[in-house]
Design a protein around this nucleic acid. Structure first.
Lengths: 208, 208
DNA sequence: TTCTTACGCAACAAAAAGTTGCGATCGGGC
DNA sequence: GCCCGATCGCAACTTTTTGTTGCGTAAGAA
């Protein structure tokens, strides 16, 4: 199927194989150095392809990046439901961490963060962001229905803060982001930090 | 515009004036296009200065950016103490919001977020961050002393989450970042979102 | 004023970005 | 097995960007 993986010697990749490799390389370069510093030649090298091949297929840098971003729009957002708010928040947190660990996620985050550079790219980034906002809303709705949180509570605020805490950890403080840290964030969001006897009992119960 | 073309108007800038203008322009360019795409010539044009002037004063791009970021480190860090943890958190949040409201603050944050992995910049960002970490630590220490939070509580986690929530609001969701939002974040961090009768009483007491 | 410093400017050198022509080779069709 | 159109690699080339140097001159202090 793939011409590039032919057993003997090195055969020249062609057609859709080249497209896939170049777009993949574009995503990776985007994640590594960002849009501004991205170069056609660097993408070609990473893809194991001559730069003329890239130039002939995509006229400009923005066109190439647009094609690359479009090519990865099919990723699914996990829509698990664990039955408890805490479990759901942990699941969402894990998916966020996994997302930010992948080249695709880093590229999207870069695009979102660097908003204001290219109008077209900003639009793509905005649409990608909106796609990933849907399932968290359903999640907090379920928690309200179970009575775990008050109806008046700002549930989206919890999701956004969870996301923000992870982003902060990853991109600002650059400290390790493991399961233990995620649990501490979730427990903070659930119970807060203010001293309360009732709260400490709840925490103890949860850890058991 | 240029001194040479307007002999009677503006005079040619020199010395500290040139330095200030170039560093200022560097910050603005960082905010506009980021570190990777930043060019010396672009900075020089924005500063209304010849590119040779920039090249002679700063040998490399990283050196220029380092100087520019350091030049804004001189801004004072507010060290207020309101007597309560909630008040202190609100004060810190306000200073963060004020910081992010300025073009300079946005530029450094955007840079750290989007390109924090660049080795050269990681060191600068880390040192700048450490400078601003001192007062939050003192703040939570005071809260522990007052008995508002448990000694074992991860206080820095609260600060980092507060910071993360704000940058999430700023750079991801792009929703308004006002006093009302800040209060909701702080109350979430203090009391959590899980449903508790004791907690709702505490919130009511606090708002009175 | 005079003297030193440092900036503007143009011309240059080097490197990166982008283009073109052509031979090679892949894959589909006969 | 062989041909043919499409597409890729390669090298040579042009253009653009990036970085350097020498010199005239303006700015500011003595």
């Amino acid at each position: 199927m793939l011409a590039s993986t032919t057993p003997r010697g090195k055969l020249r990749a062609r057609g859709s194989t080249v497209v896939a490799r170049v777009l993949r390389a574009t995503i990776e370069e985007l994640a590594r150095i960002g849009y501004g510093a991205l170069g056609i030649e660097g993408v070609a090298n990473r893809a194991g392809v001559n730069k003329t091949t890239v130039y002939r297929r995509w006229a400009t840098k923005s066109e190439l990046v647009r094609a690359a971003l479009r090519s990865m729009g099919d990723d699914k957002v996990c829509e698990v439901s664990t039955g408890s708010l805490r479990g759901d928040l942990l699941a969402v947190g894990r998916s966020i961490i996994a997302f930010t660990a992948s080249p695709e996620g880093r590229s999207i985050l870069r695009m979102v963060l660097a908003e204001g550079m290219e109008p077209e790219l900003a639009a793509i980034a905005a649409s990608l962001r909106r796609e990933r906002e849907a399932s968290p809303r359903a999640l907090v709705g379920a928690a309200v229905a179970r009575g775990e949180i008050a109806r008046g509570a700002d549930a989206m605020l919890v999701m956004e803060t969870l996301f923000g805490a992870i982003i902060q950890r990853l991109f600002i403080s650059h400290e390790p982001l493991n399961e233990a840290f995620l649990e501490r964030i979730v427990d903070l969001l659930l119970s807060g930090v203010a001293r309360t006897t009732r709260k400490r009992a709840a925490l103890r119960l949860r850890s058991a």
